[in-house]
Computed example of a mutant assay.
Amino acid sequence: MSSTSARLLTLLSLLGARPRWAGAELSDRLGISTRTLRRDVEDLRGLGYPISVLKGPNGGYRLGTGGRLPPLLLDDEQAVAVAVALQTTPTSVSGIDDAVARALTSLKQVMPARLRAEADALHLTTIRNYWEFPAPPIPSATLRTVGHAVRNRHLLRFDQLTPDGRRPDPGDPDFAPPVRAEAHHLVVWAGRWYLVAYVPGEEAWRVYRVERIHPHAPTGVGFEPRPLPAPDVTSYVMATYDRGDTPARWQCTGTVVMDLPADVVARWAPGGSVVEFVDTTRSRLTLGAWSWAGIAGLLATFDADISDVRPAELRDACRTIADRYARASR
């Protein structure tokens, strides 16, 4: 690599490390004159990097964001990290498999031989965790539309799809008018995408499953961000029982009424379960496992009284486990 090319890469790395640099400081770091620095900056601009010149006594240079994606500069650890991340990309978004494969191939093509060997050595096979229940893949166009509304603080207008992906017609009994919501946050939890939004017409916060959102055309109508009804967005989503979840498919599925509030149960319920509000101190939990004893064991982790246990097989499993532990405690 020529000294000029190496210097340009170093300059680009420095510009990406801080929001702004004084010209004299950059010149000192690179060991060049201010005239050579200006020429190098122009060369980087010609390659597509949007570098701004800041005027005034506190002026200097700043690397901004451009209208097209310029070449990226990654150090060794970053390049390997991106290669690993591309191989472990979740399948929760449809239509990007080919793009992911092409991105990984492109990255390996420009890696030095030693890094390419390291990336190849990290060829991964992802095995699904039985307790993760990702939603059906989301169309990438839907994700872009929702993400655009979140990023730009625009009202989002959308229809809600049924759990099986159907869009009800106006004459259907389950038809509902389009939702008009302030799109605040996107959250990914256990392979499921959620939209946290405020619905002005209901004067309430809601959590929606993104794969059940059928967006209308962008509204372009802005809104002022509101404070969340929780310390942070993670806590809010995890403690919201009415977030559109549906029971996962298990060999056994049971339901009980638990003497705990719905927000407490929702926070700790395993993936693929459903929590329903009963009253301020009780909730209904529907969950599954590979056996009835497995469900009974999960229920015990909540350390709370239960009632209305269904079906009969789950009641039998609870009795069997109670007898087993009673004998063990003697």
Rank of each mutant, 00 (worst) to 15 (best):
3 S>Q: 14
3 S>M: 11
4 T>S: 13
6 A>W: 00
6 A>H: 06
8 L>W: 02
11 L>I: 10
13 S>H: 04
14 L>C: 03
16 G>S: 09
17 A>C: 07
18 R>L: 10
23 G>F: 02
24 A>P: 07
26 L>R: 03
28 D>C: 02
32 I>Q: 03
32 I>M: 01
34 T>A: 15
36 T>M: 13
37 L>C: 01
38 R>C: 03
40 D>L: 00
40 D>C: 00
49 Y>K: 11
51 I>C: 00
55 K>A: 14
56 G>Q: 01
58 N>M: 09
59 G>V: 01
61 Y>F: 15
64 G>E: 15
67 G>N: 13
68 R>K: 15
76 D>E: 13
84 V>I: 15
86 L>N: 00
91 T>H: 11
93 V>S: 09
94 S>C: 03
96 I>P: 07
97 D>V: 07
99 A>S: 14
99 A>P: 07
101 A>P: 08
102 R>G: 01
105 T>W: 04
106 S>M: 12
108 K>L: 10
109 Q>G: 05
126 T>C: 15
128 R>I: 05
130 Y>M: 08
135 A>W: 09
135 A>C: 14
137 P>G: 08
139 P>S: 02
144 R>T: 10
146 V>T: 02
147 G>P: 06
149 A>R: 03
153 R>C: 07
156 L>N: 00
158 F>L: 02
163 P>A: 03
163 P>T: 00
164 D>L: 12
168 P>W: 04
168 P>D: 05
169 D>Y: 12
172 D>H: 12
173 P>C: 06
174 D>C: 07
175 F>W: 12
175 F>H: 11
177 P>A: 12
181 A>D: 04
182 E>H: 02
183 A>W: 00
186 L>M: 10
188 V>N: 15
194 Y>D: 02
196 V>R: 02
201 G>A: 14
202 E>V: 00
202 E>S: 11
204 A>P: 05
212 R>N: 04
221 V>D: 15
223 F>N: 00
224 E>N: 06
224 E>W: 04
225 P>S: 10
227 P>S: 13
229 P>T: 01
234 T>Y: 12
236 Y>H: 05
237 V>E: 00
238 M>T: 08
238 M>F: 05
238 M>L: 14
239 A>P: 02
239 A>Y: 02
243 R>Y: 08
243 R>W: 06
245 D>W: 06
246 T>P: 04
246 T>Y: 04
246 T>K: 07
248 A>G: 10
249 R>E: 11
255 T>C: 11
259 D>I: 05
261 P>D: 06
264 V>T: 09
266 A>R: 10
269 A>P: 03
271 G>C: 12
271 G>D: 15
272 G>V: 05
280 T>A: 15
280 T>Y: 10
280 T>N: 11
283 S>Y: 04
285 L>W: 03
285 L>C: 06
288 G>C: 09
292 W>S: 05
295 I>V: 10
296 A>N: 05
297 G>L: 14
301 T>F: 09
303 D>T: 14
305 D>S: 09
306 I>F: 09
308 D>I: 09
309 V>S: 08
309 V>W: 03
316 D>S: 14
320 T>N: 10
327 R>W: 07
327 R>C: 05
329 S>A: 15
